[in-house]
Design a protein around this nucleic acid. Structure first.
Length: 582
RNA sequence: GCGCCCGUAGUGAAGUUGGUCUAUCACGCCUCCCUGUCACGGAGGAGAUCGCCGGUUCGAAUCCGGUCGGGCGCGCCA
């Protein structure tokens, strides 16, 4: 019995007898001699099959692509002119003395090794074939390496990993839950956790100084290109005796920075990860997750038009512009496209000025005064070839419209350098937000965050307007325009929690009903604590340069939450339902 | 729930101002030939009711309506 050899090791085993097991990658049948490229997880090695060396040559002749084989033979150095410099094992080949078919394969429904990649639906249906592709193999390895990288860091920093329940409780705030009927308790349900939020806080009360978990999280919400349906993974963390979010941010700056450089081999745009307030992010980039690989800031020019005669500007609460370098080259048709995008975000239209040959050309130029035009040119440091685009409306819409256009322009002009990663922390999110559909104040993020200023800040705020000014010690990390982390200093004080809900019209009983376990725990000596959770799938997607999150998952569901390979979800037996009382 | 886009042999594409489309190409597949290829080569072959249903028309892959499936976005979600 020969020891099983890996393809990549064969160049070191010249003149030795080896057994290799793998798949028929390609076959080249010359009528007499047959060449088989045998593939295992380490690479490809050429098998040479001569009729005189093999008892039953018909076995070799019957081989087809993706048959699973075991071949035994001697590793030979290839002669001059026969070496293949295109593969790592190209200097050797295995002269086969025995070949065994371990399993046949029908013609594959997709061609995993072809340049032409099958559409995603087929790739997902035959994921086990798709996973044979080197790119997917590499992805699986990278993911494992990333998890290992993270665990090393966390352990070095004295975080301990705790597994929290998968069968948990429905949470009243946040996303839609997956419910699990409780067989032992008719009419009652478990829920899959949207995040281990409450458990990790209880761990703090339980005296765990630093917790982490690479945790599965479950949310029944519609997916996006950067958001999986159903389940995803978070690096969930929490630290006790932390009262300022900056302490958490500084803890994780080196981890994420080294994931970018050491793990992913990409270039950081900033050595020091910048902190930007939520307000500044919204005002300057029109987004709470700005992509800082490119500049294109929103510039407020309301003051320039304080006494304008131009009706559209005259009636606007806020006027901002973004300068697009080389934007004057945009065709009429392109500008129409951007105008449509602006309208889809709520703009009435899209005013612009092109600067060409020292002139400001624009459909609205005739409405603007010399002073206004020259002040614009100065403030934006206009060069020939630039264009500027206006947002004029209420502040919220202006930010939204120009924030979206900023991203669209960056796409159009190729400003998103795939080799660069711009990280930033967006800090000081509003504690409450205005819920337009219900015409009332509601929590901006999760309700467990500590307002800056503690209970005094809450007591001081009487009107809706005042409540909306309260800031939470809540922070997100943003990577190239993707939110990859969300965290906050938690509210570990029952009194403050009651008050926070009280401002929204909920009485103490409501809070006790919904968060009884946590409130109870907080009575018995809860240390202050803070933490955050990183979306590892989304991070990996960006670090590997993918633009769809399903590309970094072994078995993702499609956009309708269907696993087209396993056909889940599916009908279950009547008996199963009966047992559950359904 | 809403909006935009897509659906043609096993796979990827072309064809979509209606008519030589009896649907083109590449890869794959099958048969035969070939003892040094490595994306082997050569000869031949099979394989598509153009997602589905209906309509307009002398005539539909092509136009219209509906429907199903998929992708992206909004809503939703941190």
């Amino acid at each position: 019995m020969n020891i099983r050899t890996l393809a990549e090791k064969t160049p070191e085993l010249i003149d030795q007898k080896v057994t290799i097991q793998g798949w028929v990658h390609t076959r080249r049948d010359h009528g007499g001699v047959i060449f088989i490229d045998c593939r295992d997880h380490t690479g490809i090695v050429q098998l040479v099959i001569n009729p005189e060396n093999l008892a039953d040559f018909s076995v070799a002749e019957s081989l087809r692509d993706e048959y699973v084989i075991s071949a035994t033979g001697v590793v030979l150095e290839r002669g001059e002119g026969l070496k293949n410099p295109n593969i790592p094992t190209g200097s050797v080949e295995i002269s086969v003395e025995n070949i065994e078919i371990l399993n046949k394969a029908e013609t594959l429904p997709i061609q995993p090794f072809s340049e032409q990649q099958a559409n995603e639906e087929l790739r997902l249906k035959y994921r086990y074939l798709d996973l044979r592709r080197p790119k997917m193999q590499s992805m699986l390895k990278k993911r494992a390496q990333m998890f290992s990288f993270i665990r090393n860091f966390m352990e070095k920093e004295d975080f301990i990993e705790v597994s929290t329940p998968i069968l948990a409780n429905s949470s009243p705030e946040g996303a839609r839950d997956f419910l699990i009927p409780a067989r032992l308790h008719e009419g009652k349900f478990y829920a899959l956790p949207q995040a281990p939020q409450q458990f990790k806080q209880l761990l703090m009360v339980g005296g765990v100084p630093r917790y982490y978990q690479l945790a599965a999280c479950f949310r029944d919400e519609d997916p996006r290109a950067d958001r999986l349906y159903g389940e995803f993974y978070q690096l969930d963390t929490e630290m006790s005796f932390v009262r300022d979010g900056e302490e958490v941010r500084q803890m994780f700056d080196p981890l994420i920075s080294s994931l970018v450089t050491d793990f992913a081999g990409k270039e950081l745009v900033f050595d020091e990860i910048p902190r930007i307030s939520y307000t500044e992010a919204m005002e300057t980039y029109g987004s709470d997750k700005p992509d800082l690989r490119y500049d294109m800031k929103l510039v407020d020019v309301s003051d320039i038009f304080s006494s304008t005669e131009f009706g559209v500007f005259k009636n606007a609460e806020c006027i901002k512009v973004i300068k697009v370098e080389n934007g004057a080259s945009l065709s009429r048709k392109q500008i129409n496209n951007f105008t449509e995008i602006a309208k889809s975000e709520g703009a009435g239209g899209l005013a612009y000025i092109n600067y060409e040959n020292g002139e400001a050309k624009s459909p609205i130029a005739k409405f603007l005064s010399e002073d206004e035009l020259s002040e614009l040119k100065n403030r934006l440091e206009i060069k020939d070839g630039d264009a500027i685009f206006f947002g004029a409306d209420n502040r919220k819409i202006v930010n939204k419209v120009l924030g979206r256009l900023r991203v669209e322009f960056a796409d159009y002009f190729g400003l998103k350098d795939e080799n660069k990663i711009a990280l930033c922390w967006v800090v000081d999110f509003p504690f409450y937000e205005w819920d337009e559909s219900n015409k009332r104040v509601d929590f901006g993020h999760n309700p467990f965050t500590m307002p800056r200023g503690g209970i005094d800040a809450l007591i001081g705020a009487k009107t809706d307007e005042e409540k909306l000014l309260i800031v939470a010690d809540q922070y997100d990390m943003v990577m190239n325009g993707y939110e990859i982390c969300s965290g906050g200093v938690r509210n570990h004080n029952p009194e403050v929690l009651y008050k926070a809900f009280g401002h929204l019209g909920y009485d103490e009983k409501y809070v006790e009903d919904k968060f009884g376990a946590m409130l109870n725990a907080f009575k018995y000596g809860a240390p202050p604590h803070a933490g955050c959770a990183f979306g590892v799938d989304r991070m990996l997607m960006e670090l590997l340069g993918e633009n769809n999150i399903r590309e970094v998952i072994a078995f993702p569901k499609n956009g309708n939450g269907v696993d087209v390979m396993m056909n889940s979800p599916s009908i279950v037996d009547e008996d199963q339902l009966k047992e559950l009382g359904l």
